[in-house]
């Protein structure tokens, strides 16, 4: 899907909460001490954080860097599977907190872990068509996992906001094209009113994650006439360390292309924030002229793949922390504090 008018990233902001729990601490809790765990630690939201507050933090960082009037934003879309309200748009709260209300369109997107890239794709469409000047696309989650579930060793919290607008000489990067690949594949889901998601174990792999990411990426490369070596970086959704590495291998990418965007070992899987935070980490270090592949994955299932060309290094003289700095800014909590933070003790 190529837009008729090119759309660029005006600014972006990633947010990772300060708290971490070591996966070895989770393993200690469930009698799995000593096991080799691919994810070393996961980011945990504070007691007073949820997907909305983290969306606001990411959006505030993006705006600080952008120096545009928030009133020029025409759309705010928040992709998340951990909305604090089942009914009431998170976008309304974000819009008010950054001073973008009221002349905007806002909505929340849910497509498991790809709500954020859906939001991005929608914004690209609105800007390319000339309907809005700027759009804010956010992917954010306080990743949910049932106690002792495999997921508990990987889920993290965090999110990223992308302020997109018409491509100019000043934009950080621009989108060449995107593709989506969607089928009805029930690999991972959460029924209404259930606190934790369920999943179909190994079925989440080959027919789900790999099939969708590989097809979306192949279709994108076919549309643009690119090969894996045309990309300097590749960022895939990261439910664990194995899946993105294997997907990369299947598509012909090298580990080096994947390295910069691989945050899972020290962040965990921030669901709708996962791939987008990977993109933020890459943009933090990428140089003008470099090309980035981004492919999200949302269970259920679908994948959105984007080709992004870097134009400017946004960081010169900028006070917004890098993702690498946010990952280092941390406070460890134990499993007891973790369950309190994540609302797993009820009171």
């Amino acid at each position: 899907m190529k837009p008729e008018r090119l759309v660029g990233i005006v600014s972006y902001g990633g947010y990772i909460p300060i708290y971490r729990v070591k996966t070895s601490e989770i393993a200690r809790m469930w009698g799995r001490d000593g096991e080799t765990l691919q994810t070393e630690e996961v980011a945990v939201a504070a007691m007073d954080e949820d997907s909305v507050t983290m969306a606001v933090e990411a959006a505030r960082y993006a705006l600080k860097r952008a120096k545009i009037n928030p009133k020029e934003i025409g759309a705010i879309y928040v992709g998340s599977e951990s909305k604090p309200y089942a009914v009431k748009s998170s976008g309304t709260i974000v819009a008010e907190a950054i001073g973008a209300s009221p002349n905007i369109t806002a909505a929340d997107f849910e497509f498991a872990c790809k709500g954020g890239t859906e939001a991005l794709q929608t914004c690209i469409g609105l800007i390319a068509s000339g309907m809005i000047k700027y759009g804010l696309a956010i992917g954010v989650d306080t990743g949910q996992a049932a106690p002792s579930d495999e997921l508990e060793y990987t889920v993290g919290c965090g999110g990223a906001a992308f302020l997109v607008g018409p491509k100019t000489d000043e934009t950080v990067a621009y989108f060449e094209a995107s593709t989506s690949y969607v089928t009805d594949t029930p690999d991972f889901w959460r029924r209404a009113e259930r606190p934790y998601p369920s999943h179909a174990r190994r079925f989440t792999g080959e027919p789900a994650y790999f099939r969708h990411i590989v097809n979306a990426t192949k279709n994108l490369m076919a549309e643009l006439g690119y090969k894996p070596e045309d990309f300097d970086y590749a960022v895939f959704h990261q439910p664990n360390l194995k899946f993105p590495l294997k997907a990369g291998l299947m598509l012909g990418f090298t580990r080096k292309q994947l390295e910069h965007g691989l945050l899972i070992p020290s962040l965990g899987n921030a669901y709708a924030g996962s791939a987008l935070l990977g993109l933020v980490a890459v943009l933090d270090v990428a140089k003008p002229g470099q090309r980035i592949l981004l492919a999200s994955y949302g269970s259920g299932s679908g994948s959105d793949a984007f080709s992004i060309v870097v134009q400017n290094n946004p960081y010169r003289g900028n006070p917004i922390p890098f993702i690498s700095q946010m990952l280092k800014r941390k406070k460890y909590i134990d499993y007891a504090q973790y369950v309190k933070h994540r609302g797993k003790i009820v009171f």
């Binding site: 007073d48 954080e49 949820d50 909305v52 507050t53 606001v56 505030r60 309200y85 709260i93 907190a97």
Partner: peptide, 16 residues
């Protein structure tokens, strides 16, 4: 920073 300030039970509004 922008945070949740008050939440009273699971029914009512969340105050930020």
């Amino acid at each position: 920073t922008f945070r949740k300030v008050r939440e009273n039970g699971k029914e009512g509004i969340i105050e930020y």
